[in-house]
Amino acid sequence: MSAPAALEIRGLKKSFGPAEIIRGVDLVVPKGERHAVIGPNGAGKSTLFNLISGLLVPTSGEVVLNGARISGRPAFEINRRGLSRSFQVTNIFPRMSVFENIRCGVLWSANQKYAFWRGVQSAAGVAERTEKVLDEIGLTDRREVLAGVLTYAEQRALEIGITVAGGAEVILLDEPTAGMSRHETDRAVGLIRRISEGRTLMIVEHDMGVVFGLADRISVLVYGEIVATGPPAEIRASAKVKEAYLGEEAHA
């Protein structure tokens, strides 16, 4: 008996005007799986993430999180239900300290809501949780620095930290290692492995080393459709995938 589905995508479509970007995606991601989405540029990987996380509303089809339909709900509500995401382009709070950045990720899940009648210091568990995340992403020493002046790799780590700070069960990471050196990538992969422990992870990634090292299963998205889903070995062996994507990449 396989694990129950954390995320279920059924017949998902998205058009921008006449252009159909996502052309009917069906995918089931079981609880606790690390699932990678790969595909050539323009395949619609980021659009797929935007649809799942509520940044975009699907034209048709639905997204189900832990048995509840989330498609069409606003992004903040989807986040409150336990799905959190990072962005391909670093998306942090630049003129706030690293500590504040992480704390903003913690507040809602610590049931602080819009409280303007009590101090943020006094909120139970918030500081501890923030410290723990800072420690996990290795930025404890940089806690007082403004997020905007961190190095690129540090900002990417902070981005992941904000994403996981609220303790979401389902994490979507959009190209977390893009633009990193080999060494930085290795560190980032270690971080992703740690933070996704016991959670469901969906990751868009171009670095095939990262993808094949990290993922339990891989889906290949080409022109808005999933052409194959399976364990890394199966994907590596698939002629269809080679033709559609890996081959193209190897020639490039």
């Binding site: 996380s53 606003p74 959190s84 630049p94 003129r95 504040e100 903003c104 507040l107 819009y114 609220g166």
Partner: peptide, 22 residues
Amino acid sequence: TPFGRMCNAVRENPERAQFVGY
């Protein structure tokens, strides 16, 4: 307060604020 900090977050990056639940 938590609200005050989220005011700053919304000033800095309203899109990101949505993805931390606000």
